[in-house]
Simulated scan of single mutants.
Amino acid sequence: MSIGTFHTEAGAAIPGAEIAYQRFGAFAGEGRGSNNVIVVEHALTGDSNVPDWWAELIGPGRALDTDRWCIIATNALGGCRGSTGPSSPHPSSGVWGSRFPALSIRDLVEAERAALRALGIEHVHAIIGGSMGGARTLEWSLMHPDFLDAACAIAVSARASGWQIGIQSAQISAIERDPFWQGGDYYATDAAPLEGLAAARRIAHLTYRGEQEIDERFGSQAQEGENPLGAFRSPQQRFAVNSYLDYQGAKLAQRFDAGSYVVLTEALNRHDIGRGRGGLNKALGSSHVPTMVVGVDTDILYPYHQQEHLSRNLGNLLAMAKVVSPVGHDAFLAEARQMDRILRNFLHLAQSPGK
């Protein structure tokens, strides 16, 4: 979907920007009025293929019932699943690479809005998102409150904390220190910064899972057939948890672009709904979109107290829900039964009189 020349919040231009999207379920209603559209926002390394990462929650009879709702999901600007990003062709020559501008969460929202409008959609019933998708959902409710009837923000905060910026910047640094990074212009070379991306994912994955779950699964066990307690340290002699993290890193490196990872992680670093709105609490208090807030009790990346802060200060809190799980941040993806109940309740409340 072409959205023309996109101008970023910081003043850069992206000519000929494209936003990829997928639709699940038939549209019913009016593009400018009441309809059955629910926009689902993906997390950092997700994409528009919602059934791939929320398989148990979308489809006929599920919480996101495609016999009733028209689910639309885009791939975020800066991504690598069809939307314009660092790996996309540049209008003048080659690919964008290091010429691709920095983005904010607000940029991702504006690009998505442009794509929806290009589809003839000026209003939707609800927007739902977790993690980076939750940040986009919050910004939607403040930037374009008349565009949506209700919002559900999952496992996210009102702004990036110092800890989040630090851990996310460490991931960016891991990629930039890979000798194949080439300042972001590796696309024309024979090698990509796969080791740097895998290292970034290993760091990130420890924040996506809960400490309790990781310890119960791996503890201090050695990887089968290896001995990490030998006379000399060897990267080939690993603890079981290291093998698991190596697998997770290699898995992401096979399907995701390092340039997109850097751009979208930096967008998360810039997340701050209070910027230019008089601070966090004033911004939250100004929200009139009915909003459900969902958190995970063992979340290390976005601790539950951050969702409590949202719930205490939002101007129109629809409900608060907690996912109880040892899994940590990823519980909003892994705990299908709890999320099914939460999303069904959200959609019920979003249609109730006086919402």
Rank of each mutant, 00 (worst) to 15 (best):
P353G: 10
G134E: 04
R68Q: 15
D107K: 03
R201E: 02
N316L: 03
W181E: 01
H305G: 01
L148Q: 12
G162Q: 09
I203S: 04
D215G: 07
G31A: 02
D246T: 10
G61V: 05
Q236A: 13
V327D: 14
E195S: 03
S220K: 15
L280K: 10
E30T: 12
G31P: 01
R201H: 06
R99Y: 02
W163G: 11
A267R: 04
A63T: 09
Q236W: 07
I167A: 08
I128C: 05
F239H: 13
R202C: 03
S220I: 14
L206T: 15
A76H: 04
T265F: 04
Y208L: 05
M320N: 08
S260D: 00
G133F: 01
E112S: 10
A63F: 07
G285S: 15
A253L: 10
R233L: 04
G134K: 02
Q212N: 12
A321F: 03
Q306M: 14
G249Y: 00
S234E: 12
P86A: 06
A10D: 12
W96M: 01
H329Q: 14
R255N: 09
F24D: 08
A191C: 10
L57Y: 15
D185C: 13
L103W: 02
G16R: 12
L119S: 05
G29N: 06
L349I: 14
F27Q: 11
V294E: 12
G29M: 05
E176M: 11
S83Q: 00
D246C: 07
F232S: 10
R68I: 12
G31E: 00
I128R: 02
A319F: 03
V50G: 02
S286N: 13
V95F: 03
L252S: 03
R159C: 15
I58D: 01
S243H: 14
A151W: 02
G279P: 06
I214K: 05
D47E: 07
P60W: 02
D246A: 04
Q351A: 15
N35S: 12
F256S: 00
A250N: 07
E266P: 01
G285V: 13
A192I: 02
A174L: 02
A191W: 10
